[in-house]
Amino acid sequence: MPANAGRTDPGYAGPPSAGGEELVPSRYAVRIGEIDVLVVSDGVLPLPTKMLGHNVDQAVRAAWLNDMFLPTDAFDWSLNAVVVRSGDQTILVDAGLGLDPNLNLPRAGLLVRRLEAVGIDLKTVTDVVLTHMHMDHVGGLLVDGVKEQLRPDLRIHVAAAEVKFWEAPDFTHVDMPQGFPDALRAAAKRFAQDYRSQLRLFDEEHQVAPGVIVQRTGGHTPGHSVVRMASGGDRLTFAGDAVFTVGFEHPDWHNGFEHDPEEAARVRVRLLRELAATGEQLIATHLPFPSVGRVAVDGDAFRWVPAFWDY
């Protein structure tokens, strides 16, 4: 890991003043060559533990959770987004949950507030990259007043297959809590309507900025994508929802939000093998904040190696 990884970049404003609301950090900076990456927490999402592997027996899941010192009924999923600065572009990768009063998720949807706290004005964002159009990745763009703060020439990069999927989404293979399918449909539909003129669609791969490429993987959703960053010999992948905490030890477990769980497992294994071979850094939406680390092969599975905090 570069010596300056994790240190706040001079281009970002300092932390909120003492006496603010936050008692724990909500951002973490990494430098990939000449590219600045800032992980920003959107909060946490409490979900049933069945979402981690609905294709395995409850006792098997419970054993893994006990080994991880996690509750066996429900626990908090991290929600991570990243801000990338490459050249003269400022890129927001995913936009967080936003606000959905019908789901009662008060500890999520904090991204816009936290961007403001770190001194990132939404008007400076030139590009948005969406790994997919689930509501915890597009919802921040649907918060009242946000669109008015964005640049009129903002470019939103998303796979064409993703936009097509949400015209008539298939939920037959998911295993989500009640209310989530309707909320996901509504958020994706509204997002496509509100931002259609700003969408920049791609098929398989697209360069967003120097050293920043988005690649479609499919699996989690048909247009699910990852963002690959490379500069000066350093590399980092933002994997979106291709990898979850349990996916290192059990990459074949099906996550409840995967629309094609069999393909999602194949995508996960291919990606983890590649990351283990290259040694590059990994960030993912639902790995524990700040979710910066690397992947190692561990027998027939993998091992997550979190980075040491550097400050």
Rank of each mutant, 00 (worst) to 15 (best):
222 P>L: 15
290 P>M: 01
107 R>V: 10
148 E>R: 02
229 M>S: 09
227 V>S: 09
256 G>F: 04
227 V>C: 11
214 V>W: 10
238 F>P: 06
95 A>T: 14
55 N>A: 06
15 P>T: 11
80 N>V: 09
223 G>F: 15
206 H>Y: 15
247 G>H: 13
150 L>Q: 01
93 V>E: 08
104 N>P: 01
137 H>P: 02
61 R>K: 13
306 P>F: 03
290 P>G: 00
175 D>Q: 13
213 I>V: 15
91 I>C: 06
297 V>Y: 00
44 V>M: 06
113 R>W: 04
276 A>E: 05
299 G>F: 00
163 V>T: 15
199 L>R: 10
139 G>S: 10
36 D>E: 11
26 S>A: 08
35 I>C: 06
245 T>V: 05
69 F>L: 11
284 A>P: 06
7 R>V: 08
180 F>P: 01
113 R>F: 05
302 F>D: 03
177 P>E: 14
142 L>I: 06
45 L>Y: 14
42 D>W: 08
185 R>W: 03
123 K>G: 07
38 L>Q: 12
255 N>T: 03
104 N>W: 01
229 M>E: 11
245 T>Y: 03
257 F>C: 08
281 Q>T: 02
202 F>R: 09
174 V>Y: 04
181 P>T: 09
157 H>V: 13
4 N>W: 03
291 S>V: 01
28 Y>I: 12
284 A>G: 05
96 G>L: 07
287 L>C: 02
266 R>V: 07
63 A>V: 12
194 D>L: 12
297 V>H: 04
173 H>I: 05
219 G>A: 15
11 G>T: 06
134 H>K: 04
41 S>P: 09
264 A>Y: 01
101 P>M: 05
130 L>N: 03
41 S>N: 09
268 R>Y: 02
197 S>N: 11
88 D>S: 15
200 R>Q: 14
245 T>A: 10
222 P>R: 13
89 Q>N: 12
134 H>D: 07
311 Y>M: 00
225 S>A: 15
224 H>K: 13
301 A>S: 13
265 A>E: 04
91 I>A: 04
250 H>G: 01
59 A>S: 13
12 Y>E: 07
243 V>S: 08
295 V>R: 02
120 I>R: 01
218 G>I: 14
251 P>G: 02
187 A>K: 05
77 W>Q: 06
107 R>W: 08
5 A>D: 09
70 L>P: 06
310 D>N: 14
54 H>A: 10
100 D>Y: 09
143 V>C: 01
220 H>I: 14
174 V>L: 05
91 I>G: 03
264 A>W: 01
287 L>S: 03
55 N>F: 07
